[in-house]
Design a protein around this nucleic acid. Sequence first.
DNA 1: GACCAGGCACATC
DNA 2: GATGTGCATGGT
Length: 219
Amino acid sequence: MAAGRVGPLLQELYQRLWEAYGPQGWWPGETPFEVAVGAILTQNTNWGNVARAITALKDQDLLTPQALQALPETELARLIRPTGYYNLKARRLKNFLDFLANHFENSMARMSAADLASLRPALLSIKGVGPETADSILLYALAKPTFVVDAYTFRILSRHGLIAEGCAYEELRHMFLAHLPVQVPLYQEYHALLVRLGKEWCRPQPRCATCPVDGWPAE
DNA sequence: GACCAGGCACATC
DNA sequence: GATGTGCATGGT
């Protein structure tokens, strides 16, 4: 793939997705903290299961940093059970809560005041927060200009011949960042649209026949 | 019953 | 550095 073509191709893909699906309204979540919690809970899990857990936490007024800090890890695990890997995710949430308390006084607003360049490595240092979770928190909870790459992004772009099979996360992330205008709403919408396309048309078992971006890129 | 879902850390080679 | 494995529920 010639480097000069990538920008226009990514723009065209976005255009076609937007025309096919329109705005996706991402991320589902009422507060930055809720978005961050959801980002951890949705790891390798259907969003419907995450929504149940979020509702369970809300119903008991537990969806605040302070309330979750005070909640025993075993009790937290019980409440997020529908998301799968619940023991693992309870620990990961606790790790994030410790980070938020220690560095930003339990305040997502304070966290938001920090630079992307320092925040991203800081988030990645939390055990249980990998690149996709970190970028989801940065882009959707804190409105920082980073791009979220997920399994659908890899699958869609490799299946349409834009990237090699073994393309690394950072490589793909930089591809989007380097070729798109620096606009947070664009990054948010683009990732959401890729997930929408992936869910409907780009499953592990291919059935891309007449999907909305069939024939892209034109050769 | 198999497959899949908006990953990540860790062990092993 | 690449590859394999454990973590686990709920929908299709």
